[in-house]
Amino acid sequence: MAYRPSERRNQKKQTPPEQPNLVPIMNLFVTIIPFLLVMIVISQVAMVALNFSAPGGGGSDAVGDGAGVQDKEIKLIVMATEGNQIFPGFEIRGWEDKPIMLRNSANNDQYNFLSLNRTLVNIKRRDQKLENITIIVYPDVMYGTLIQTIDLCKQNGFPNVIYKPASVSYGTGG
């Protein structure tokens, strides 16, 4: 169909459809995504829980009646250096007649977690019903040591960890 010249001038050119301008959106994304990526934590954050709602005070890890009374009260004492008398180590009372002393013979400055782990495995193997353990901690024991001790107890079948600070000074023997 032919148009008159005047009409032909008014004809609009056929142009391809315009794409929306995505550059501002891209700018926004390029800014936000690195920001959010920085905030994401790569390492796996975990939690260790203590529960104080169970009867008996002190602090039991069991909810409600979970921390029932058991025949033996196993006490795990975490010691630290105090003067020349106390060494970094563990002492387990209430399991055998004599307290079990666990110390690191190779390096006196470090706690012997391997030995503690073995002992806890043995205790649990000999008495499957045991679930409660009381951890008594000296004031100068590091927080990291306390948490790793609680961790080992929980890993070895003692879900009810009772945390107590050492209120009396440590004497020799049992």
Partner: peptide, 24 residues
Amino acid sequence: SFANIYFSTLQDQNWLQATANSVQ
């Protein structure tokens, strides 16, 4: 009145083994 107390930690399945290696 906080009956539930949580301690934040980093999860590491091998910390015990790492401790053993460092001692040796």
